[in-house]
């Protein structure tokens, strides 16, 4: 079972024409059609995305009505994406990840969620879990914990199907 975890820095690329957006979209499509693969995100990533949209709205002086349409459309993009539960204890368990890999609290709680929930609840092997992110620090920390990583800006669209080959 191949498990992908999509963070906010990768997910938001899907909404713009920047490098990596097509790769993320292709990944979402391929996972949806593959019974042996699943895609996860978390409420942390969703809230982080909403904060980025809000920041963008403030920077460009977007009218409220358009902002509402934008955020509604982005939240509506979650169909077919499973979410990892994030519990109070996860934030505390994430502290050693912060001090070891020098990542911020939201990255650490996501990393803890990936490492703990996906491996214990879903019985996934760390080598079958791929963190999809364009945050180099987050990716580095994930690699050091034994996870696979995928930076959509450095991963060609054409190579996406190869991820699913046995």
């Amino acid at each position: 079972m191949l498990c992908f975890y999509l963070d906010a820095s990768a997910w938001t690329k899907r909404f713009t024409n920047e490098l990596g957006g097509d790769t993320v979209s292709a990944l979402l499509q391929t996972v949806a059609a593959d019974e042996m693969a699943s895609l996860y995100t978390s409420s942390v990533a969703i809230a982080e995305t909403a904060a980025a949209v809000n920041r963008y709205r403030n920077r460009v002086n977007m009218p409220d009505s358009e902002f509402i349409a934008l955020i509604n459309g982005i939240l509506g993009d979650l169909n077919g994406v499973s979410r990892l539960p994030v519990l109070d204890s996860d934030y505390l368990d994430a502290i050693p990840l912060i001090t070891r890999y020098h990542i911020n609290s939201s990255d650490a709680v996501q990393l803890h969620g990936i490492l703990y929930r996906l491996t214990t609840i879903l019985s996934a092997q760390p080598s079958d879990i791929i963190l999809v992110s364009s945050d180099s620090r987050f990716l580095r920390a994930a690699r050091l914990t034994g996870l696979q990583t995928l930076d959509p800006t450095a991963f060609p669209l054409e190579a996406v199907p190869s991820l699913f080959e046995l």
Partner: peptide
């Protein structure tokens, strides 16, 4: 001149 959503995520982090 305004960063993209993805860049804003990294900026916030």
């Amino acid at each position: 001149e305004v960063p993209t959503l993805s860049q804003l995520v990294l900026e916030m982090r």
